[in-house]
Nucleic acid binder design. Structure first.
Lengths: 210, 210
DNA sequence: GTCTATAAACCGATAGAC
DNA sequence: GTCTATCGGTTTATAGAC
């Protein structure tokens, strides 16, 4: 696989990812992808076999280059979770890094809308995405929460993980309605910082950590 | 408009709603809608003018028959919010009713997936949906929260509303992944009750109401 | 590997019979 | 109001030239 071929494949994945994020798998045509990637309609089938396979590759691409597993890292360094201050720092750090990575300047804006859309769409790739992208981080979060509150049962720890997920994800998949309700044009850096702070505080309060 | 015509229109809306929820506007064909509604491909254009217009009608149908504005009701009956117990009851009641209505037996399972998908899709109907379906409830929630905590500024009250929205919506749009992570086949009544309880407690904790 | 041309199927919308 | 037939356009996928 030479450089040129890699360039074409990457260009197709990036063009496709952006279009899939906006219009979904079924709403995006191979022609539109080829045109956006400055390629031709035969290239998609040559490099990926089919549109469905290219869709799966765009999801794997996001999992590879947009990965954010802050809870996994905090859980590996368990010693920092021994003190109350360390626990607070961990929760704040996890939330802050999620917002920071998801809305970073150099994170393509289609990464997470595509990820969340893939959760809503019935697709054969869904199980793979959940297993590789969401399960490791979710598992680490439940472990951390049960470490902080040993009396919490496993079922409740799962719900806490979903609360964190929902509190962050809403700003991705309901971006347009949120901006409408706030009368804003876009999320500013200051706004995202205040959201991260607010979400951290709410999650800490639910753990009796202040 | 006779009964038969009403039947056909309703059948088309219900068939279309289910397909739009699964495959989106662009992923659903007029032929598939007509077949599912046991009608013919000319019926959609005869009754609704276009596929886009039928899409808009399915959203209005959900807004009409699936409406759940518990916060609006609680805010209208402001006297119940004077005591601490009344405030706790209000928050619990709002959360419980949202889960109850969204996952009710007689609520078609496509109602809220379609609603949430419409937030993610760039569509001319989005502004109308936000204005008619989400804004009234969101406004009531911010009012109630600011009544409970008068020192909270308006921006933070908005964030609290989004926290509530995200905490509930995650169980709609990430239903499949959540079931995978829990190793379940479906949400049970007991599970949804425990989720409603957990979310209420977390939201109350963030307001220092226990 | 890249591209044009094209095949075969499908799309939304509509005309016209009943 | 319902339905079939059909128009004009687009879709994915592929064959074959370079």
């Amino acid at each position: 696989m030479n450089t040129h071929e890699l360039d074409t494949k990457t260009a197709l994945i990036q063009a496709a990812g952006e279009l899939f994020a906006q219009h979904g798998l079924e709403g995006t045509s191979v022609r539109a992808i080829a045109e956006k990637a400055s390629s031709n309609i035969a290239a998609v089938n040559y490099h990926f076999g089919s549109k469905e396979n290219l869709y799966k590759e765009t999801l794997l691409y996001v999992a590879r280059y947009g990965e954010t597993y802050p809870a996994v890292r905090f859980w590996k360094d368990e010693t920092r979770l021994q003190t109350r201050e360390g626990q607070i720092e961990a929760i704040r750090g996890i939330v802050a890094e999620k917002f920071r990575v998801i809305f970073a300047e150099n994170t393509p804006s289609w990464f997470w809308p595509l990820m969340l859309r893939s959760l809503l769409d019935p697709s054969p790739s869904l199980a793979e995405v959940v297993q590789n992208v969401f399960k490791p981080e979710h598992d680490a979060i439940t472990q951390i929460v049960r470490h902080i509150k040993p009396e919490m049962d496993e079922a409740t720890a799962h719900l806490w993980g979903f609360l964190l997920f929902g509190a962050v994800a809403i700003y991705v998949f309901a971006r347009a309605p949120i901006l409408m309700l706030l009368g804003r044009q876009d999320y500013s850096r200051e706004f995202l910082d205040s959201v991260s702070d607010f979400v951290s505080n709410a999650l800490l309060a639910s753990l009796d950590l202040r």
